[in-house]
Simulated assay, not measured.
Amino acid sequence: MTDAMTETTRTAPPTGEAADAFAQMERYTRFWNTGPDDERARLASAVFTDEVEYRAPVGFLRGAAALADFRDQFVSHAGPATVRRREEPEVHHGRARLRWEILTGDGTSFATGTDVIEFDEDGRIRAISAFLDRAPAGFDPTAHD
């Protein structure tokens, strides 16, 4: 997955908690778009708590290493892909909603979804609930735990 994000317009730049959360959302997107190298490890330690929990239709994962492995398995199966934001994240009270799209290497839309993200008191991500807004072609939700 490579780094790409949508260009959107905000009426005013975020401040305080929202600014911190927006910065984390930038790093979070970069994490999903970075291959197995030192940059991804640095991003993971800055973005996630040690025991981050990820819940999605494909299953439950715990820890940044499990998320990185999930990303690598996806790319090895589907080929090059990019996660991009569909719009600016919404942030309030230690949570964010991030709407995303996965594009394949040729720019075709693979799937869209929404992540509901929970931050810890230090601003790192402690939990992610991922929802598919538009599942990939042929996706069988009963085939996963």
Rank of each mutant, 00 (worst) to 15 (best):
M1F: 03
T2Q: 14
M5V: 12
E7A: 11
E7V: 14
E7C: 07
T9G: 02
T11R: 13
T11F: 13
P13N: 08
P13E: 15
P14V: 01
T15P: 01
G16N: 07
G16W: 15
A18H: 06
A19W: 08
A19C: 07
D20N: 12
A21D: 03
F22A: 09
F22D: 13
M25Y: 00
M25A: 05
Y28W: 09
Y28H: 09
Y28P: 01
W32D: 02
N33G: 09
N33H: 01
T34L: 09
G35W: 08
G35S: 14
D37G: 15
A41G: 04
R42Y: 00
R42K: 09
R42S: 10
L43G: 01
L43W: 00
S45N: 11
V47I: 10
F48L: 06
T49K: 01
T49A: 08
T49Q: 07
D50W: 01
D50Q: 09
D50H: 07
V52D: 05
R55F: 08
R55C: 02
R55W: 08
R55D: 12
A56I: 08
P57H: 09
V58G: 05
L61D: 01
L61V: 10
G63V: 05
G63A: 05
A65S: 12
A66L: 02
A66K: 05
A66R: 06
L67N: 02
L67C: 02
D69C: 03
D69R: 11
F70K: 09
R71L: 06
R71W: 00
R71I: 13
D72E: 15
Q73Y: 00
Q73C: 02
V75A: 03
H77G: 08
A78E: 15
T82W: 10
V83Q: 07
R84V: 00
E87W: 05
E88P: 13
P89L: 00
E90G: 08
V91C: 04
H92D: 10
H92T: 09
G94L: 09
G94D: 05
A96P: 12
R97Y: 07
R97F: 11
R97S: 11
L98E: 06
L98P: 04
R99C: 04
R99A: 12
I102F: 06
L103T: 07
T104L: 15
T104C: 04
G105C: 00
G105R: 12
D106Y: 05
D106T: 15
T108Q: 15
A111T: 13
A111L: 14
T112Q: 11
T112E: 13
G113A: 07
G113S: 01
T114F: 01
D115H: 07
D115C: 06
I117Q: 04
E118A: 13
E118H: 10
E118C: 03
E118W: 08
F119L: 06
F119W: 02
D120I: 11
D122I: 02
G123C: 10
I125D: 02
I125F: 07
R126S: 11
R126T: 14
A127M: 07
A127T: 12
A127I: 04
I128L: 10
I128S: 00
S129V: 14
A130D: 15
L132N: 07
D133Y: 11
R134D: 07
R134Y: 06
A137T: 14
G138N: 10
F139C: 09
D140H: 04
D140P: 04
D140K: 08
P141Y: 09
P141S: 10
P141D: 12
T142W: 00
A143I: 02
D145P: 14
